[in-house]
Simulated scan of single mutants.
Amino acid sequence: MIDVQRLRVLRAVAEHGSFNQAAAALHLTPSAVSQHVAVLERSLGAQVVARSTRGITLTQAGRIMVQAAESIAAELAHAKQQVDQLSTGRTQLTIATFTSGGRFLLPGALAQLTAAHPRTVLHVREAEPEDSLPLVREGAVDLALAYHFDGPLPGQVSQNSSMEWTALMEDPLYVVLPEGHRLAGRSVLDIAELATEPWVLGCLKTEAYLQRYAERAGFDPEMRGTTTDYFFARSLVAAGLGISLIPSIALAPEVPGVRAVPIEEPGPTRHLGVATISRRRDHPRLATLINALQEQAAALDDT
């Protein structure tokens, strides 16, 4: 029989990429982690990790077992919720969300959910996708409102994952300029036209994204400031510190003294969606919430 604790250890090894880091996260010794993995391999009759001087990688058998470990952890968390419901008569849902998406999509969707299921106890926690998606996988949250930039879906969501991604909307990024800027009157901009401009950004991931687009356009952007708040970034633009790159849903409320201009297609875009455990996606309350989020996204798309 496969020991659940050994699956938990394998998950930690997969997440951290080494026995030492997994041991620190689990408050075990590296030797104990190695022994857990070795016993798991003997019980399976298959190697689950490949060891090298560069670290630890999962074998195909290891990936299968980590996926099973994720599913088991999520199901145990769900079972705990069901047991709690027996004593309270109320269902609890926990939602993780990134700030701008939560601000514009979540309130209306939660109002629809509570109207349809008034005995649902809701908990909301703020988290960026790199934090919220593992929480879904572990069963710590029921749904994550998240995003990814151009390219594949977030790394934790794949064809072989226990999670399912439901797309909500595309969220193009705009260039935000001071109102008196020489390019502020344009209806659309090519990002190459901004090669000599200083930048102030409202998100570290947006900075990395701009760097990729700038490299394609043949320039290295000059960074004058990086914040963790899009409103603050636009305020700095209004003050003349530089220009910015802001997702469309983060352009409200209006900041006096700035102008947002779209970028020529194909321009930089965020893709918004929700992640859930695949087997739980059709749970009545989750289904109601996902449908409500889709309605909110469609309404926002139409504005």
Rank of each mutant, 00 (worst) to 15 (best):
M1Q: 10
M1I: 10
D3S: 12
D3K: 13
D3F: 02
Q5R: 12
R6V: 02
R8D: 14
V9W: 06
A14Q: 06
N20G: 10
Q21E: 15
A22Q: 07
A24L: 13
L26P: 13
H27M: 09
P30L: 07
P30E: 05
A32T: 14
V33Q: 11
S34L: 13
Q35A: 09
L40P: 09
S43N: 14
S43G: 09
A46K: 11
V48D: 00
A50H: 13
R51V: 14
R54F: 00
G55S: 07
I56T: 08
T57F: 01
Q60V: 15
A61L: 01
A61Y: 06
A61V: 10
I64R: 15
Q67F: 10
A68T: 13
A69W: 04
E70K: 08
I72F: 07
A74P: 08
A74L: 06
H78K: 13
S87P: 03
S87I: 12
R90G: 03
T91F: 07
L93C: 01
T94H: 04
I95V: 07
I95P: 03
T97W: 01
S100E: 04
G101R: 01
L105K: 01
P107R: 09
L110G: 01
Q112K: 00
Q112G: 02
A116V: 03
P118T: 05
R119Y: 12
T120K: 02
H123I: 06
A127N: 04
G139M: 07
V141F: 01
D142S: 01
A146S: 14
H148T: 13
F149H: 03
P152L: 15
P152W: 13
G155H: 15
V157L: 10
S158Y: 14
N160L: 15
S161F: 10
E164M: 14
T166M: 03
M169P: 06
D171M: 04
L177S: 04
R182Y: 03
R182P: 09
R182N: 09
L183S: 04
V188S: 00
I191K: 00
I191W: 08
I191R: 04
E193M: 05
T196S: 15
E197R: 05
W199H: 06
V200G: 00
L201H: 01
L204A: 15
K205S: 13
E207D: 12
Q211M: 14
Q211Y: 06
Q211P: 00
R212T: 06
E215Q: 14
R216H: 11
A217V: 07
D220E: 12
E222T: 15
M223Q: 11
R224W: 07
T227A: 11
Y230C: 04
A233D: 05
L236K: 06
V237H: 09
A238M: 07
G240F: 06
G242K: 02
I243D: 01
I243Q: 02
I243P: 00
L245F: 14
L245V: 08
I246Q: 05
S248A: 12
S248N: 13
A250C: 10
L251E: 07
V258M: 05
P262Y: 10
E264G: 01
E264Q: 05
P268I: 04
T269Y: 09
T269K: 08
G273C: 09
V274W: 02
T276Y: 11
R279Y: 15
D282P: 01
T288S: 02
E295C: 01
A299V: 00
L300W: 15
D302M: 08
T303C: 06
